[in-house]
Design a protein around this nucleic acid. Sequence first.
DNA 1: ATAGTTGACACAATCGATTGTGTAAAGTAA
DNA 2: TTACTTTACACAATCGATTGTGTCAACTAT
Lengths: 371, 371
Amino acid sequence: MAPRKKTAPDTNSTSPVSMADLARELNVSMTTISRALSDHFSIGPAMKQKVLKLAKKYNYQPNHMASALRKGKSKLLGIVVPYIEGRFFPSVVHGIETAASKAGYNVIICQSNEDVAQERRNLDSLLSAQVAGVLVSLSRTTLDHKHFDKLRSRGLPLVYFDRVVEGDNVNTVVLDDREGGYLSTRHLIAQGCRHIAHLAGPQHLNIYKNRRQGYFDALREAGLPEDESMVVYTDMLQEQGAAGLRQLLALPTPPDAVFAAGDFCALGAMQEARRQGLRVPDDVAIAGFSNESFTLVAEPNITTVDQRCEEMGQAAVRLLLEVINSAGAAFSPRQVALRPELLVRASSLRPAPAATPVPKKVAVSRPKAVG
Amino acid sequence: MAPRKKTAPDTNSTSPVSMADLARELNVSMTTISRALSDHFSIGPAMKQKVLKLAKKYNYQPNHMASALRKGKSKLLGIVVPYIEGRFFPSVVHGIETAASKAGYNVIICQSNEDVAQERRNLDSLLSAQVAGVLVSLSRTTLDHKHFDKLRSRGLPLVYFDRVVEGDNVNTVVLDDREGGYLSTRHLIAQGCRHIAHLAGPQHLNIYKNRRQGYFDALREAGLPEDESMVVYTDMLQEQGAAGLRQLLALPTPPDAVFAAGDFCALGAMQEARRQGLRVPDDVAIAGFSNESFTLVAEPNITTVDQRCEEMGQAAVRLLLEVINSAGAAFSPRQVALRPELLVRASSLRPAPAATPVPKKVAVSRPKAVG
DNA sequence: ATAGTTGACACAATCGATTGTGTAAAGTAA
DNA sequence: TTACTTTACACAATCGATTGTGTCAACTAT
């Protein structure tokens, strides 16, 4: 390209003032400017002041791209989520952005739309953008994870959250779903319920498998029978919650409580209960999962388990930054499980205290590491 | 820096293979590689094939930062929103990311947390990241917009959405709130309601002012009185909806319908109506605004106005890309207003058809440009 | 066969910031 | 005063890709 004199302001969106401009004005080298701005010891205090002042005067903005290019590390984090809708992912992203921003990072967000191919493209995109690390929640159609090797081979720090790859050689942050199921069921037992049913989700998904496990754990702990006939498997839809309850009410010993693995399902069950003339929670207590916003709108308000979305995002960023800052020094992958929060609402709160108090084995229930 | 030989793989996250590597392997110049990859005419077809093949073999990923640095334009768009929660912003962001990605852009997302100072920092951050354009929804505390001049002075394309700066020298995408209020109220009139109240929002916010305007427009069109005593001003909270309805029901002529400028407010009103023994929609019809997810959970389902969140994001990106691609050629700012969609649900649907059909002046109601 | 074209690629500067090494001036010690 | 440190900067290469201008060869035309 022809040596272009600094005259026309171009159509460039580049900052109007670069380090070279400052250097020219002060008759010093760019080295001095760069080091003065980054508070390098080899620059005298007087010079530092002058540079800082001039930078402020001209509203100098460092060019992150140039810096990243030279240093080989940008201040960008990549996020790959299946989509940005509903209650869960937006909240997690909220947490991620907040934590990242606090650490001086910006985040690039990508949606896989539950499509592996798109997920693959997202990764390429983030690679090209030279992100310093990646946070991923897998798409539903992601069966193998070979495309993530590309990141690993380049030494790009990677943290999975919520929908994760199983194993102890990866960094993950998840909700402790088993604990959620356990807390919820234990609460129902404490309310005096003794015939607790479970509206379960697809068992090939870990979250639902674990919630069911927590349900059984609580039953066993309380000495109640673990009865498979009290478990109905659904896809967590509202109508299936209704249908599920219908099926359960037809049993010889109908349930006096239902722990649903999802709020929509719980809502359906509650509506069905009332259609059948049952009172909630008096005749049948109901608890859901996910803390969907409508749980506070439904009447009665639905007891549910909060998934700590924001904390999950923050924990994921913390972990990612740790890996990034470990800089080469072999970092041994860590798996973090967040403790869910049981939100007791009217749908499960019996007026009278529990007839038969349950043994207080609270502390025992803590699972592995808690973020 | 000491000339470092290509030996140690560094701790760099840089792509393991650069154009220089390809050039070396093929014994050609980087120029040739670059031009072959970008399909420049001065490169022979044979050479192009060889380069493409080698690039594929080595899984070459172009370094966007380097490219952006040289070209002065990145493939990044910046988003600044007050926060990423609730129903609205996540959906808009969803639309933005989808549209941007389709056009080969990645998006960097920033939250202002409703704080001007943070918003200012966000802009600096995006400037440093060398984004090609910015999409903004103003924070609630943003009273003057001087900090946006920094963008304009650098020729950075800018589009406001939803919470916009007023004026015809800026690019904006908003929902036509007046039309939304109009459609909703017209619907209530068509249901046979003649004493329609309005639960209004803070009038210093344009969205609420416009919804109220639409309400009055519909009344006037139907020849109904525009009665200020039928308007209660609130902050759109659930409790205020209840309180507002209580106040209205105490009037000499209580309303037979309520158009609330927000769904939460509508919900509160509906709950209050039932507490007072009124049937919805028979005794009092209710319509809200925003299409919150709980409107489909409440019983009866609440009639509401959809804000076209995703379309708004897409329209904003379209407009932004237009400005970006106009490349210098003076682009005259445009204001886009999206047409809202009335979602009629049980809360306002009277069993009997309208007693007195309303004059069909539908076409007349169309406002300015529709995105 | 000589001049004029065209095709296909190389040179080298450039975007803006970073950083190892060199070096002149100033300061300290002997 | 001579020698040795420090202090405070400057030089210049570098990250990876882009691009205006040369240049050499093969080709066409007269």
